[in-house]
Design a protein around this nucleic acid. Structure first.
Lengths: 192, 192
DNA sequence: AGCAATCCATACTCATCCGTATGGACAAGT
DNA sequence: ACTTGTCCATACGGATGAGTATGGATTGCT
């Protein structure tokens, strides 16, 4: 009857499995990445999975690569286009603070640093982001050495924030108080 | 021959299992906490375990309680005895930075925030430590609101640091550079 | 229409790990 | 010496989840 109006009941591709895997990772963590569960969620069975991937770890590998490639420039790309270097860091802070959605996978991966496959990925991503902060701080006027330490400190604060307020449900800070916290971060971490 | 010179080949107690569990958690994470593995490590079998504990989760629960109670005042207790409030925070920073051993369990638990049993424990511990920082910052001269935000920022930096440099093996910063980072933290986070 | 490649369902095997059942070893009390 | 309570070994049952084997369904190509 209908050729392909809805994406339902269509054959699946490897990409479909990868994005579904990332979704599941963001929701329930890497440990919950089971093939039968994913298959049920996609409306198929294991038979489908093992045609597209050789093993469970192969899917995780592919999903991580996809996340590392396509999910990277979501925030950083926009920031680089801000002309005034002194405006970049405050703007970066505010955007990261209010667009917590893209950070859910990162937060989930932070809890899976046991797994050998995620460690190198997180190492590369963290390294790149820290370097981004490093140059941003230099352009803001800090001497190189101090800029590097400040970048490390800032990124550590970011990571810790994710753990404490995202994963953990700490005292559920409300919106106004949260904005106050962000502005406090900007005031203490960014040179005037 | 010998009644009890070596602790080897002696009957085990519940405490033995709990400290062994914490050791295993620090080394390989909460996910690696399996009763048969622990039993092998202790030189016994499952039969011993299920005499002392009703279930695997009971052991985890007991181990977490033990850690929360006895492992808490290792650092904070000493700090409170420092007379000058202005000296407390720098000293706290330096000690925490150089005594990373007691923080291995905390780092491991940070990666197990999926588990329902560890979430409330980590919430309480993080809450208490943040409050400790809060009062420390007030005693250092910051107004209450700013002191609270600074405490949150500091603790987030601590948590993020554990994740990045402890769990993850980031560029393996050397000793001198690390000391430089700690001093930079002190300079930027602690009011003069 | 007919063929071949692609995609998936069904039905297994196998390993792991929690928990149980039961009997034996060892200590202490009487 | 005999019993009793404590601690542990051995041997099982059962659930879960990865991976395999194989045939059926669907699509694209000619």
């Amino acid at each position: 009857m209908d050729s392909s109006p809805k994406p339902e009941r269509t054959r699946l591709t490897a990409e479909d499995w990868e994005v579904a895997a990332l979704q599941l990772i963001a929701d329930q963590g890497v440990g919950a990445l089971a093939v039968e569960a994913l298959a049920r969620q996609l409306g198929v069975t294991k038979g489908s999975f093992y045609w597209h991937f050789r093993t469970r770890e192969a899917l995780l590998q592919a999903a991580l690569e996809r996340w590392e490639q396509y999910g990277e420039n979501e925030v950083l790309g926009q920031i680089e286009q801000i002309a005034d270097p002194r405006q970049r860091l405050p703007e970066l802070f505010r955007r990261v603070a209010h667009e917590l959605q893209p950070h859910r996978v990162y937060a989930a991966l932070l809890k899976a640093l046991d797994h050998p496959l995620v460690v190198p990925v997180m190492a590369r991503v963290s390294q790149r982001r820290t370097e981004f902060l490093h140059t941003a701080y230099r352009e803001a006027g800090l001497p190189p050495r101090e800029a590097l330490n400040r970048a490390r400190l800032t990124y550590a604060a970011y990571v810790g924030f994710l753990q404490l307020n995202f994963t953990l449900g700490l005292p559920r800070i409300n919106h106004e108080e949260f904005d106050g916290y962000v502005e406090h971060m900007i005031a203490t971490l960014i040179p005037a």
